[in-house]
């Protein structure tokens, strides 16, 4: 089952839910499927481990990457480059907006309301049930409500990203899938896709899932590890 997302896709979720890792991998996945893709780094709240960390790999694949100007890349300032609004007005076949965590991170979207006005977009909430505050249905719904309130935009789908990074196992993926499926059924939001670390993809029974699966090639690694090739 392939991921068929197109148009403007806004990736939101709580801190550390995996938005950036998913944005980078989704961009690469769709680009390799022949779609024209751009990614904008809208994370104004996280100081480390942002889309900008993978800009070289993404550019090499021919993916457009919108970042703050170079001299501000490591600044502790909420800089929103006007290029983002430009990208929304003239989007690629798939345009991914990688937004910062929680309601605080999602607040930036309100600043893009004019650019988004009249555009068709989908806002997807990334859920990792092994993170604090989204380990229960109630927690996920609270996060959804807070992000929607801050961004003044509705969430229209879910991405399941169950993982414990290097300690992720097949059983944990199954447990996480069952959890996000429940969230999907209870909330009425479609489960767009789930993620599976590429190193586990051979041992996981993909038939168990009723949604597409995005294989994650980990990009956001600490300095003593190497990023996987996309």
């Amino acid at each position: 089952m392939d991921i068929l997302l197109e148009g403007i896709i806004i990736i939101v979720g709580n801190y550390g839910s995996g938005k950036t890792e998913i944005s980078i991998n989704l961009a690469a996945n769709r680009k390799l499927a022949g779609i024209d893709v751009s990614v904008a780094d809208l994370d104004l709240v996280n100081p480390y481990f942002r889309t900008r960390e993978a800009r070289k790999q993404l550019s090499e694949l021919g993916i457009g990457v919108i970042l703050p100007p170079d001299k501000y890349l490591q600044a502790d300032l909420p800089i929103l480059t006007p290029a983002v609004a430009g990208l929304i007005r003239k989007p690629s076949m798939l345009t991914i907006l990688d937004v910062g965590g929680d309601k605080v991170g999602a607040t930036v979207l309100a600043a893009l309301a004019d650019a988004l006005d009249g555009k068709t977009y989908r806002m997807l909430q990334v859920i990792n049930p092994f993170r604090p505050f989204t380990d229960t249905l109630k927690g996920c719904m609270k996060m959804k409500g807070e992000i929607e309130k801050a961004s003044k935009m509705p969430i229209s789908g879910i991405i399941g990203n169950a993982n414990l990074i290097d300690e992720t196992t097949a059983d944990l993926i199954y447990e996480g899938y069952d959890f996000v499926l429940t969230v999907s059924l209870e909330s009425g939001l479609p489960l767009e896709f789930i993620t599976v670390p590429s190193r586990l993809s051979d041992e996981i029974d993909m038939k168990r899932f009723s949604c597409p699966v995005l294989k994650l090639h980990r990009q956001l690694v600490p300095p003593w590890e190497k990023a996987a090739s996309l």
Partner: peptide, 8 residues
């Protein structure tokens, strides 16, 4: 186990 940021 749960996945946490060091600060959390």
């Amino acid at each position: 186990k749960i996945l946490m940021k060091g600060n959390e």
